[in-house]
Design a protein around this nucleic acid. Sequence first.
DNA 1: AGCACGCCGACT
DNA 2: GTCGGCGTGCTC
Length: 719
Amino acid sequence: MTITRVALPIAAEQLFDYWLPAGVDAPDGSIVRVRLGHRRLAGVVVAHAIGSEVEQSRLLPVEAVEPLHPLPADLLELASFVSRYYQAALGMVLALLVPPLGAGAAARRSDDVAVRFTEPGRTQLPARLRSAQAIALHQRIVQLDSISPIVLATFDEAERRFFRSWVKAGWLAPAAVPVDAPTRVALNAAQAQALDAILSARGFAPMLLHGVTGSGKTAVYLAAAERFVADGGQVLLLVPEINLTPQFEARVRAMLPGASAVSLHSGLADGERRAAWEAAASGRAAIVLGTRLAVFAPLPKLALIVVDEEHDGSFKQQDGVRYHARDVALFRGRQRGVPVVLGSATPSLESWAHARGGRYRMLALPERADPQSRMPDVRFVDDREGRKREGLSDATLQALSACVARGEQALVFINRRGYAPSYKCWSCGWDAQCPRCAVRLTVHRDARQLRCHHCGHAQRLPGACPECGNVDLLPQGFGTQRLERALASALPTARIARVDRDTVRARGAFADVRDRFEGGAIDILVGTQMLAKGHDFPRLTLVVVLGADNALYSADFRATERVFALLMQVIGRAGRAGLPGEAILQTDFPHHPAYRAAARHDYATLANTLLEERNDARLPPATHVALLEAQAHDRAHVDAFLASARDCAMQCRAGCEVEIFAPVPALMAKRAGFERGQMLVQANRRPELQRFLPAWRAQLATRSSSRVRWAIDVDPASF
DNA sequence: AGCACGCCGACT
DNA sequence: GTCGGCGTGCTC
């Protein structure tokens, strides 16, 4: 009897044996449906055997084999590496590689079809097709006389459905819209040199493409991709966020009109994701563009991996299997013997250190690609002096007003949504805390609510202080809502819009505001870091940054580099097309090294300083760390578990050069009703840490109790 | 991860 | 006397 050994998506380490019915074939890597207890699960066949250790009468059959490409051997090996490296069960890792298992065949994407309006674009939307969303989409596209794949790529799921229904209803007709000629940009000398380095790489070659904002990193990636695709290879292109993929996709399609590109991210419908996965697995998709989960896509003809904005924190998964997609990409590049290009204007200190040390090849783009465009001037406004109007200094207001008067556009950036980050009693000092988290509640004035941004708790704004009964409760600090109001009253003629998670919740809303800003219907955009990435706005000449100091107060060891990266990104938004740009930074610390470096557009000096600090403090990347995180409803259970974990670590340490730290509360000591704690294990050399972790984890598993949820985070993003 | 089985406190 | 709390262990 043929026995298959199946990895199932459960936290346990062991494999489960099932027998394979006669005539059924399920090679290694096959995705199968089996029963475990009462549940039906999808698992991955990782081995075959003639018999099983398990008593034959207890064995169940494989119930079905999914009609998908089996996971190829290199992906099974990748999963095994990720499982070992990140201390996660193999079955949980493999679950990341399995596409959504829909019923039946995946829906075919109609997105590649260009269409033309059957009648001129001003046509009324037929009455039977009218709905609020349909009308909104109609307004967006009514002035166009055809819909190219590039426009299509900007549609969200709902819009695609409307679009298909319109085609079906005959209101739009497929037409042979000529494929746009590739928007080929001439590469400057630095870009050409970088491209040459990528193309001449043989085998695994990690490279850091360090290019200032606007230096044309994308043009380099895509030119390289074009060549690898022309040679019959597949290119994996990883980008940080879902928001970015449609824009990036449009750009890929514009630059490489002949290549078949698919997107792979969690925002896709199951059928689409499955279709994209199949296209990758079959080799049909020449370019796979996606967020971190795309690093696990099957790519039989993989020739190049690009990680764009490699420093971005969203490449690190924060729950479940805590992998870092950039690091997995590097492993994959080594495994498959292909170049890996890490691109950033503000590389992670990890990558920077490797590039400086010669382990990665350094490719530099020191100038903006557009020779007319200069880096913006950065002006500091000392928040501790001068008059302010609702958080906005006179200088800031003057600059905004002048900018709008010139017919140019401005972006006001504050990394806090809501009206105010705190609600405070001026009589006794009480402030509103979340009952389930160790954080203050944010004032949402429109909704007349206090909200927790971590657990979703919401309550009505109290009219009086629950401690002393005083009614002098006031919002303290500034969020996007408050700033929007302040600007509206200070600059009554300016057209202002706000972009944050609250305003763009509806699908397509972000694209809508972006289009309106781009079209000149908005003068000032107020928003969170959502605005920091993505689109270039040619008439955007002024960037104002408020509240950046808050991030510096964070206890997280990466706070400074994060603030810097964000600043560089936002500042880089200003003045991209010939018009000179300016950035204003309102701060209490105008001499902070991170701010000074941002003003000089000088990444290298700051990075080198930070690396020295990390070295002195024995923090990553000078050392390698793993964090044990524990949470429970009862603080005592957390403490007891971590104390026991520490004892355990002391015993397991034998022979490994690792340092064990004492348990401490997590950076957020309580979240969603769970008390949280953590402890750190540190090693000077990675192999020592990797040698220690499996033994420790095995020990922890025997001591754990169901009251305490715990996880080991290898290379944690913060601690 | 579920989900049953099994052992100690407050109820119709 | 039972109902049900969760702590422990198993699932091929």
